[in-house]
Design a protein around this nucleic acid. Structure first.
Lengths: 133, 133
DNA sequence: ATGATAATAGTAATCGTAACTAATAAGGGC
DNA sequence: GCCCTTATTAGTTACGATTACTATTATCAT
């Protein structure tokens, strides 16, 4: 909610993430934006990514292993990771039933359960085709 | 499956994790084991933790943010994180129905879905009591 | 016991990210 | 359009977690 200024750096970072066909990390974004603004600082990219995420224009996806990824798709969705090549695809959201959440809450003696992190892992079709040979 | 040797370092690391009442990280284990083996190397702790995890004697829990945690409980279970204090509790496993997994598989055009990472976030009772005041 | 070699201590290196600081540039008011 | 305040930047250093490297030590099959 703080008044944030429009800089060409931030605009370029946003544009780079939005045109990404995958889930880029900060390094990829830095390389992209560097073509346009050769002396941009890596720190600026990190700051822009954080602020764009906070503003809800992109989504930060903190994977368990490896760097944070940034997602041009801000609609509610989940991810599936290929355990061979690391490829990540979007999938529609999956709801955990309320009664299941309630049983988790009771088992843990927590006051409430307000967020569920759900991610899928599998084998993408490309890797499946390769392993088959 | 490689022949692994029994060293007092590895035994001490295993014992430290097993007696932990929480989900310790490598640093905590290092501090614990250092009392027993003062000149143990941090690298040795990391190596022992990795090898014990590979042998299935403990479980590695790679959280999205912060260091990897190690779990003395090797039974199938999940975790719930308090978003205020970071406390982590074990909870019983929750199954995702096969038809849901199948729809995820179809949506992603993956060949198969073989693993689901599921973690809960909420407010633990201690933090709830504190916020209430 | 002894020899091959896995594991160790100690250290340096790597990776992703955050923090710092002086210089720059948005953008609101005139 | 021109200031002026101050957010943002470039450039750099620092940091935490982890891995890699290397010479030395210690396990364990023979």
């Amino acid at each position: 909610m703080a008044k944030t200024r429009n800089t060409k750096q931030k605009a370029a970072v946003l544009a780079a993430v939005k045109r990404a066909k995958h889930h880029p990390d900060a390094k990829w974004v830095y390389e992209q934006v560097s073509r346009e603004i050769p002396n941009i600082s890596l720190g600026t990219v990190y700051r822009a990514l954080a602020s764009l995420s906070a503003e809800g224009l992109i989504r930060e996806y903190r994977q368990a292993d490896g760097p944070a990824l940034y997602d041009p798709n801000i609609d509610d969705h989940l991810h599936i990771h290929c355990s061979v090549c690391g490829r990540i695809e979007d999938v529609p959201p999956v709801e955990i039933p309320q009664d299941v959440l309630e049983s988790v809450r009771r088992a843990s003696a927590f006051a409430k359960v307000d967020r569920v992190h759900l991610e899928f892992h599998g084998l993408c079709s490309a890797c499946a085709a390769e392993t088959a040979t």
